[in-house]
Amino acid sequence: MLTTFIPLGVTLVAAPLVPGLINKTKAAFAGRQGPPLFQLYFDLLKLLNKGAVYSRVTTWIFRAGPIVSLASVIVAALFVPVAGTASLSFSGDIIAFAYLLGLGRFFTVLAALDTGSSFEGMGASREVTFAMFAEPTLFIIFVILARVTGSLSLSSMLTQAPLVGTPSMAGLLALVVFSLFIVCLAENSRIPVDDPATHLELTMIHEVMVLDHGGPDLAFILYGASIKLFVMVAMLAHLVFPMPDGSPVQSGLVFGSLMALITIVIGIVESAMARLRMVRVPRLLMAACMIACFGMIISLR
């Protein structure tokens, strides 16, 4: 029973490391030392010890936003395998996974609209617009994986796909990994879609929606975002390399190094290119969707 929750526990404990490692990578490219690897843990601790300020014009939705989105992302994390095993898995859990992420976004957007601020409204409209392009891609990827592995549960789809090792499958997996990588960047508001480091409200997408949250609410949001990032990177990790069957230590090591590698790749992408113009973002996401479609055609052959 207890072992069931080890994958979720690892996710909850290790998630804040991912943004830390991305920031370290970016700092290295900028020739700086950068914030400590554990900076997000310190930030979360600091924020949890603070009080929160609520505007009089907001309603309970504003307060519920961070809690619901954190809760939904934690539940979604149950289905994602860590080093080969997931905490919870049933046939068709991919739908639950996708819509749990959707539910989190929905409440973040509602909370943003609840403030009545023009910035947050702008951010909300951008977030749902881009999600509209990212979501189909995710589903097409799921269709491909379901077709390849013959399974409808997220963990077996992710862990079995790389094992179906024919050359044509390798090409297919490359398409899947590439489009999932772009979805990962978009969903987690990384460059080239969004810039998590900017202070300019007018250019923000995700950040601008949470400007009015503070204290523990902001901690929930930041923590939820790091879990979402961890989960998406874990999905990529399972796709690019099969987890070894040996001891948990062995697969844990492989998984850990894959996670670090993909995280560093995200950091390199962020350092090597500028952000896209906002009107160009849908094109990038549509390109990802098209690539996934090609993959689907190949998988149906």
């Binding site: 490219f29 020739g31 460059i191 900017t198 300019l200 962020e270 500028a274």
Partner: peptide
Amino acid sequence: LGADIGFVPGSAYFGR
């Protein structure tokens, strides 16, 4: 300008 467009090396090196 580099910082505004999220181009890390540009902003860091010009800043130095």
